[in-house]
Design a protein around this nucleic acid. Structure first.
Length: 145
DNA sequence: CGCGTTTGACCTGCGC
DNA sequence: GCGCAGGTCAAACGCG
């Protein structure tokens, strides 16, 4: 499941989103394009936190949500209120300490909750590779007209 | 051989 | 201080 699929499906929504430094638009993902599906919750204790952190739920059979970035799994832990274990991932890029947690809901087995922590300080290679030829083609077409 | 996953141990924060 | 729960580390292992 790619990010494109995520935007297409109506099941996906931001369940929880908070940020102290403000959401960086240069981040590879721009989920704020669907404001009606967003539910902004900023609690007092989260305001005190340094890193921006947001979570969203996707209705997906697969645990791995391919957002274009490369992730390395560094841990797995079973949590108390869930039948399923929670997985911990880190961005493989050096100097980019973005983390994410992936957990399947115990009451809704088809729903996976992904929690992101931090902001990528580099562009997404996979998306750029797909986008670059398209951009070139658009430039070429705009020159003709 | 390099990179990613697995998995038990270890660390840390919090409530009692 | 103790125990629990959640988060991280790191060695071992698997795979292309």
């Amino acid at each position: 499941m790619s990010l494109i699929d995520l935007e297409k499906t109506s099941h996906s929504f931001v369940d929880h989103m908070s940020s102290t430094g403000g959401y960086d638009s240069s981040h590879g993902m721009n989920l704020t394009s669907n404001p009606s599906e967003l539910l902004l919750i900023v609690t007092a204790e989260e305001k005190a936190m340094k890193k921006p952190r947001f979570a969203f739920r996707t209705k997906c059979d697969e645990d791995i949500l391919d957002d274009g970035y490369r992730w390395r799994k560094y841990g797995q832990k079973s949590v108390k209120n869930s039948l399923y274990p929670r997985s911990y991932y880190r961005c493989t890029r050096h100097m980019c300490n973005v983390k994410k947690q992936v957990q399947r809901l115990s009451n809704e087995t088809s729903v996976v909750e992904t929690t992101y922590e931090g902001i990528h300080n580099h562009p997404c290679e996979e998306i750029m590779q797909t986008l670059t030829p398209l951009l070139h083609q658009m430039q070429f077409l705009s020159n003709i007209t």
